[in-house]
Design a protein around this nucleic acid. Structure first.
Lengths: 168, 168
DNA sequence: GCGATAATCGAACGTTCGTTCGAACATAAG
DNA sequence: CTTATGTTCGAACGAACGTTCGATTATCGC
C-alpha cells in the first residue's frame, strides 16, 4: 500500500478513502483484468466458426493481454490465492467461465475433427504454456505476442490434432 | 520462520542456531531440490539414446518430482526471485544447467528427425506445461505422474514433431 | 564430578505492514 | 459568510516478521 501511495501520489490514508482494504483493491484489479480478457475474447470470437481458428484466437487474445500487462499479470499469478473466501469465490466464478470457454472450444475441435484426448489435461497444459510466459519473456529477445501465439498454437494444435483420431 | 518453528518443534531461536537466515535456508532448499532433480534425470538418461525417449524421460522425471513435492514446489515457484543477488546467481547456474539439458535434448531431437522449430519457445512452453501443474493438480481427480507425463509428452512431442520437417 | 562446548529456548528488538483516527483543507449550497 | 459535505493527509496503532541476546540445559572428554 505504501508503494501504491508513492506511485500514485496519493497519501497512504488517502488510498483508504477510496478503497476499503488492500484485499478488496486486489480483488477489483483481478476482476477487472479477467472481465476485460473475457470481453475481448468474446468480441474476437464473433463470426469465427472454424474450431481451430477459434483456439488460435483464444491463445492470441490471452498472450496479447499477458504481454501488454506483464507486470500486472505477474502479480495476479502470484496473488491468485491471496484472497479471503468471500472475494475468492466471486473471482473463481469469472475464472471458471474463462476456463469453461476454453474447454468448450477444445471439445468442439474434438467433435469437429473426431479427435481423442483428455480435454482437462489439454486445457491446463495450454494455460501452463501461456501463463508461464511472465517468468521468461524478454521484449529485447523474444518475438511479439502475435508471433509467439502463432508458435504456441502450432505446438499445441499439432499436439492435440495429430495421431488421436477416434474410430468411427 | 514461526511456521517452520511450530512445524518442526524447534524453537524460533533454535532455527537460527542451524541456519544463518531465512534467505539462506530458502537457498539451501532450492539448491537441494534442483540438484536432486538433475541427478535423478542424469541417472535415468544413462543408456537411453533415442531422442524422443529422452524427452519423455525428462518430462516424467520433472513431473514425478513436482507431484511428489507439490507443496515445496509451490513455494519454490513463488519465491523464485526472492533471493538476494549472492544466492540468486549460485542458483541460477544450476537452473541454467537444467534448462540447457532440456535444450540439448530438443536440439538432438530436431537434428535426428530433421525438424524445424524454435527450441527456446518449445523448451519454455514445455516448462510452462509442467510447472503450472502445481496450480491445478488434484490427487483425488487427476491421474498419477506417469500417466500425466505420458499425456503431456504426447501433446508436446506431436506438437514439435509434426509438420515442421526441414528441406534436405 | 568437572569444565568446556554444543544445543535449546523465552523474551525481546527493530522494522514493515495494513489500517485507522482526527485534524486540516476544499467545495458548494443557502 | 456560514454551514454541511467531500477530500486529503500526517501520525499513529497493533500485529506480524526476521533476527538477536542472554540465560539455561544437555552432552561428553577427562
Amino acid at each position: 500500500m505504501r508503494d501504491l501511495s508513492r506511485a500514485s501520489g496519493i497519501s497512504l490514508a488517502g488510498l483508504y478513502y477510496y478503497f476499503d482494504s488492500k484485499e478488496r483493491m486486489l480483488f477489483l484489479i483481478q476482476k477487472h483484468t479477467f472481465t476485460t480478457i473475457v470481453q475481448r475474447l468474446n468480441a474476437r470470437l464473433l463470426g469465427v466458426s472454424d474450431p481451430e481458428q477459434q483456439v488460435r484466437i483464444f491463445i492470441l487474445n490471452h498472450l496479447e493481454y499477458f504481454l501488454a500487462n506483464q507486470a500486472a499479470m505477474k502479480v495476479l499469478s502470484h496473488e491468485a490465492e491471496a484472497l479471503n473466501n468471500g472475494f475468492a469465490s466471486d473471482l473463481a466464478a469469472i475464472k471458471r467461465e474463462y476456463y469453461r470457454t476454453c474447454v468448450g472450444l477444445l471439445d468442439e475441435l474434438k467433435r469437429d475433427r473426431g479427435l481423442q484426448f483428455s480435454t482437462r489435461i489439454a486445457v491446463l497444459s495450454l494455460f501452463g504454456m501461456m501463463n508461464w510466459i511472465y517468468t521468461w519473456h524478454n521484449p529485447r529477445i523474444d518475438a511479439d505476442a502475435k508471433q509467439l501465439a502463432s508458435e504456441m498454437s502450432d505446438i499445441f494444435l499439432r499436439g492435440v490434432m495429430t495421431g488421436g483420431k477416434v474410430r468411427r
